[in-house]
């Protein structure tokens, strides 16, 4: 059961991820992104990381993609009719994909080593980890977000003399 579900979720996630970039209608792409996030949350559930699964849905599917949709709708993006490939773009994409894959293998090997000891994905365990072992990255991330926020406020402020 567990294995079947794993395969189902992963394949469905990859498929909908593929459809995000193949879809011609931006709204359809966004909706498939939501779907793929859902399946990813399913994978988290299989790993018994309920907190992560829920946060995944809450933050990404519930808020971030809604903002994507917001922008798509306000900019009134039309369905694209002709696909264009620029040589430089393809090259850049390949480079980025390669770098990501390379990084991913190192992460996966580290995870495989860590997977030996059981982790509990509850809220409590998450909180403890965040406030002890990963305190610095956590705080740095929050400062980063704060900077972004301040930046937005400065940019969107009306000029006043």
């Amino acid at each position: 059961m567990h294995d079947q579900l794993f395969w189902f979720f992963s394949i469905a996630m990859l498929l909908s991820g593929l459809l995000v970039i193949l879809g011609r209608n931006p709204v359809t792409s966004a909706m498939f992104l939501v779907l793929s996030l859902f399946f990813m949350a399913g994978l988290f559930v299989l790993l018994e990381a309920y907190f992560l699964a829920i946060i995944q849905i809450l933050v990404y599917a519930g808020a971030v993609i809604v903002l994507f949709l917001f922008v798509i709708m306000l900019l009134d993006l039309k369905t694209e009719n002709v696909r264009q490939f620029k040589r430089f773009g393809v090259f850049g994409a390949l480079v980025v994909a390669g770098a990501l894959a390379w990084k991913l293998t190192s992460v996966v090997s580290a995870v495989l080593a860590a997977a030996a000891k059981p982790v509990v994905g509850t809220t409590e365990a998450m909180g403890k980890l965040l406030f002890t072992q990963y305190l610095l990255p956590f705080e740095v991330t929050s400062v980063l977000l704060l900077i972004a926020m301040v930046g937005v406020v400065v940019l969107s402020r009306k000029e006043t003399k």
Binding site: I54, I55, I57, L58, A61, G62, A63, V66, T123
Partner: peptide, 8 residues
């Protein structure tokens, strides 16, 4: 959290 995730 489940409630909020679904409600969103």
């Amino acid at each position: 959290l489940f409630v909020f995730a679904i409600a969103s």
